[in-house]
Simulated assay, not measured.
Amino acid sequence: MAVGRDAVALRALYAHSAGVDTTDYEGLRGHSICDTLIHLAVHNNDKGGSLADFFAVNVDFALRIAREFVRMNGKRFLNISSVLSLDGNDECHYAVSKAIGSKKLCEEIGERLDNIHIGYFHDQGYFGEKLYILQRFGSKIGGALFALIKILKPATSAQSLADYALGPAHDLPSPGILTDDLSTSLLYRVITRTMDLGVAIGILLFLFPVFVVLWVAIRLDSPGPVIFAQERVGARQTPFTLYKFRTMKRDTVSAGTHEVSASAVTKTGAFLRRTKLDELPQAFNLLRGDMTLVGPRPCLFSQTELVNARKALGIYEMKPGITGYAQIREIDMSQPSKLAQSDHRYKKLRSLLLDIHIIIATALGRGAGDRVATADEA
């Protein structure tokens, strides 16, 4: 059953859809049975208005529908929100009202609530209201143009939402994010690979004098090899060798950085870690295709808690990155569960604009890397 403000418009819309009943919100009160309710009514940012206007729809009206759902003894309430509401720091009226609305719905419905966050909504041959002009080019040309736009921000197809609604409840990791898999986009893979190669070649060509200076500084500071090479977990859990400038004393135990004492870091190493210059040799990993600029930070095979958590969330479908979403959020490998969840959020929200944002944030100093253990922790 389709329910909306205008019953006449709904009847016209579903006139040729067999088996679909329609009614307005008042008419919903005349029904006594509900299995799954998909709540799509929303006041979006593009409509403008005061915070009270947003609350009237995204909180108060949502609760009104939830109470009808409870009255009908419904089994599953799908509350659809934009991925914009995932940012706890976003103070726009939409994000604030949606966050409070979800909390109130949870109090009203409990475990029957299924919060789903979607990206730019589209369907085969339909590219949304904002990109309606693309439909004039037909499904093939318009689809090709939309594929270019779709790599810029997360998108969600109508078919994927329908499939999820017809499937089992709560089969997505929390927070529930339903977006198109960008790893299937050839255009995205070509662009990111081109960026990887461009950055790697630029580092090796233009920063060669820096390599020489750091090489000499590390040699003079402490005995041992200049380049630190260590086996890490790569895409599809394939092992690869990670290259960095050595920042710790020779023969330091091979373990996660957070498990190593701060006393193991050399004087030059402390400077390299603080400035992130120790990661310059990873340009070779970019050239080889072992890593990409943005992705989950590669871990050791011995970090089993993190490896298992990432495997369960499908993180190893992606290449590890020089920098990443978790890194700029100050989440490191000392928090394996939280790190895996952050990697999963990046996987679902991945886009070219997000990647560029992460690269810029890293260049501006956000994300200090994994911390070493304090004296009490070591």
Results as ranks from 00 to 15, higher is better:
Lys153Asn: 14
Ile203Tyr: 11
Thr179Pro: 14
Met248Ile: 08
Val226Pro: 08
Arg246Lys: 05
Leu166Tyr: 12
Thr238Asp: 05
Val253Ile: 15
Leu205Arg: 09
Gly167Thr: 09
Val190Gly: 03
Ile203Arg: 09
Asp163Leu: 03
Leu152His: 02
Lys150Gly: 10
Val233Pro: 03
Gln159Glu: 15
Val212Asn: 10
Asp196Met: 07
Ile191Pro: 10
Leu204Val: 11
Leu172Ala: 14
Leu204Met: 10
Gly256Arg: 13
Arg236Ile: 02
Tyr188Pro: 11
Gln230Gly: 00
Ala155Thr: 15
Met195Trp: 03
Ala144Arg: 04
Asp196Ala: 02
Gly176Ser: 03
Gly176Met: 02
Leu187Tyr: 01
Gly224Lys: 00
Phe206Leu: 15
Thr184Leu: 05
Phe211Gln: 02
Val260Tyr: 09
Leu186Asn: 01
Ile218Trp: 09
Phe208Val: 06
Ile151Tyr: 07
Arg219Val: 11
Asp221Tyr: 00
Pro173Lys: 05
Gly224His: 08
Thr192Trp: 01
Ile218Lys: 05
Arg250Tyr: 05
Arg246Trp: 03
Ile203Thr: 11
Ile191Trp: 12
Arg236Lys: 10
Thr156Pro: 11
Leu242Lys: 01
Ala200Val: 03
Ala158Thr: 15
Ile227Lys: 08
Ser157Trp: 04
Pro209Phe: 01
Arg189Ser: 12
Leu182Ile: 15
Gly167Phe: 11
Ala162Asp: 08
Phe206Arg: 13
Asp251Leu: 14
Ala255Lys: 14
Val213Pro: 07
Leu207Arg: 05
Gly224Trp: 10
Asp163Cys: 08
Leu148Met: 04
Gly224Asp: 05
Val190Tyr: 12
Leu172Trp: 14
Ala235Phe: 01
Ala255Gln: 14
Trp215Arg: 07
Ile177Gln: 11
Gln159Phe: 15
Lys244Val: 00
Phe245Asp: 06
Ala158Cys: 15
Val216Glu: 09
Gly167Leu: 10
Leu205Tyr: 09
Ile177Thr: 11
Leu197Gln: 15
Leu145Glu: 05
Asp251Asn: 15
Gly202Cys: 07
Asp180Met: 12
Ala158Arg: 14
Met195Tyr: 00
Ala155Gln: 13
Asp221Gln: 07
Thr257Asn: 14
Lys150Pro: 04
Pro175Asp: 04
Leu207Asp: 08
Gly224Gln: 07
Ala144His: 05
Val213Lys: 09
Met195Pro: 06
Ala200Met: 08
Asp251His: 15
Pro225Leu: 06
Trp215Ala: 07
Ile149Leu: 07
Tyr188Trp: 13
Thr194Ala: 02
Thr241Arg: 13
Leu186Trp: 02
Ile218Pro: 03
Ala158Gly: 15
Leu205Asn: 11
Leu242Val: 01
Glu231Tyr: 09
Ser160Glu: 10
Ala162Ser: 13
Pro225Cys: 00
Val226Met: 07
Leu148Asn: 03
Val212Cys: 14
Leu214Val: 14
Thr156Ile: 08
Asp251Lys: 15
Ala229Arg: 03
Asp180Ile: 06
Val216Ser: 08
Val216Cys: 13
Leu172His: 15
Phe211Trp: 05
Ile203Val: 14
Leu166Val: 12
Gly198Leu: 10
Thr156Ala: 09
Val253Ala: 15
Pro173Asp: 10
Gly176Arg: 07
Thr179His: 13
Val233Lys: 02
Ile203Phe: 08
